[in-house]
Simulated assay, not measured.
Amino acid sequence: MNAPLHAPKLYDCRDAFAATLERLAAENDRIVAVCNDSVGSSKLGGFKAKFPDRLVNVGIAEQNMVGVGAGLANGGRLPFVCGAAMFLTGRSLEQIKADISYSNANVKLVGISSGMAYGELGPTHHSIEDFAWTRVLPNLPVIAPCDRIETAAAIEWAATYDGPCFLRLSRVGVPDLLPEGHKFVLGRANLLREGSDLTLIANGTLTHRILKAAEILASRGIQARVLNLATVRPIDEEAIIKAANETGAIVTAEEHSTFGGLGSAVAEVVVDNAPVPMKRLGVPGIYAPTGSAEFLLDEFGMAPAAIAHAATALLTRK
């Protein structure tokens, strides 16, 4: 199907997360929230007001926060552990590995303000390594929804999934791309636009940008297939192999380093199964500087026009 390319409004996916979590918590008293002095940035104010005894605020102690989440899961609760993605993953990676992944604890890790959403706070607050850190861990699905609809669907899925997962949510506004009522399926890509000349793949905040890039390419007579690959692990190998075989070239774009992220995950599938020319767009292995997320994405060649240019250049290699 062809998704709408222009939405009248941009939505903060944290709002969809919070509203869905509150609704699910009203139906399931096992659900608890754990945060690191981030009630506001995690949008947990409403949850705190409705369920004051089910919110655990450990303060700025991310390693402890993950351990508390694991303990709550072991005690029969269903914890959503929420914090800034950079500190949730970077500071407590050992606890995520040992207490969550290795133990297969039923903990839902929610990385808030991922990518370069904290742009003005600089490199210490950019979360552009989290795909690489988390996707290597067994038992840990890694998910980056593209809009508020997919965010709500992914939270609903997580609440029913028996095991840990990492949900990567931005605070940067994005338009609606998926239809209301969309059901999240782990490991399945969403085909947002048909095309036979090459394939554009992204997730999170980049999905709407590659859709706009596809529109630019269409005006030039180039038909780009567009895949929203929300699940980085387990990845949809079938959709990637099909895209490689049928379109002959792939461009990936991500709010992450070009090392170890979505592009790397796609390239692993391509090189093992259907080698075709590829271009991976992202932060090119450096510390991204200070600036708004939108500015930085544009600076690193991920404005829609720049993505279209990269795709056009790649076609010369087919």
Score class of each variant (00 low, 15 high):
Ile128Met: 09
Glu150Thr: 02
Val58Lys: 05
Ala305Pro: 10
Pro8Ile: 07
Ala132His: 09
Gly76Ser: 06
Thr252Asn: 09
Val276Lys: 11
Thr312Asp: 05
Ala85Met: 06
Asp53Gln: 11
Arg209Asn: 07
Asn104Glu: 05
Leu297Phe: 10
Ser101Phe: 11
Pro4Val: 06
Gly45Trp: 02
Leu217Asp: 00
Arg135Glu: 11
Lys97Met: 07
Ser114Trp: 07
Leu5Ile: 11
Ala224Gln: 07
Asn190Ser: 12
Val34Tyr: 01
Ala265Gln: 03
Phe259Gly: 14
Met278Gln: 12
Arg91Pro: 06
Ala25Gly: 06
Glu238Gln: 15
Arg233Ala: 10
Lys318Leu: 08
Leu314Arg: 05
Thr151Lys: 15
Cys13Thr: 15
Val276Tyr: 07
Phe166Tyr: 12
Leu200Met: 10
Leu167Ile: 06
His182Phe: 11
Arg225Lys: 15
His125Tyr: 03
Ala249His: 03
Asp147Met: 09
Thr124Trp: 07
Tyr118Asp: 11
Arg209Lys: 14
Ala306Phe: 05
Leu198Glu: 01
Gly260Arg: 00
Asn64Cys: 04
Gly90Pro: 12
Ile240Ala: 13
Arg225Val: 02
Leu55Phe: 05
Pro179Gly: 12
Asn104Thr: 04
Val270Ser: 13
Ile307Lys: 06
Lys48Trp: 08
Ile307Met: 09
Val110Cys: 08
Ala144Gly: 10
Asp99Ala: 09
Ser196His: 15
Gly59Arg: 01
Val110Gln: 03
His125Thr: 00
Asp37Ala: 13
Val110Glu: 06
Ile112Asn: 01
Val56Glu: 03
Pro145Leu: 04
Thr160Cys: 10
Asp147Val: 09
Val271Arg: 11
Ala306Pro: 06
Thr89Cys: 07
Leu5Glu: 06
Arg188Asp: 15
Arg14Glu: 03
Val271Trp: 13
Glu94Asn: 05
Glu268Ile: 13
Leu177Ile: 15
Gly71Gln: 07
Pro179Leu: 14
Glu215Val: 08
Pro179Ile: 14
Gly282Cys: 09
Ala310Gln: 13
Ala33Asp: 01
Arg193Ser: 12
Ile201Lys: 00
Val142Asp: 04
Thr316Trp: 01
Glu180Leu: 08
Glu156Val: 05
Ser114Thr: 14
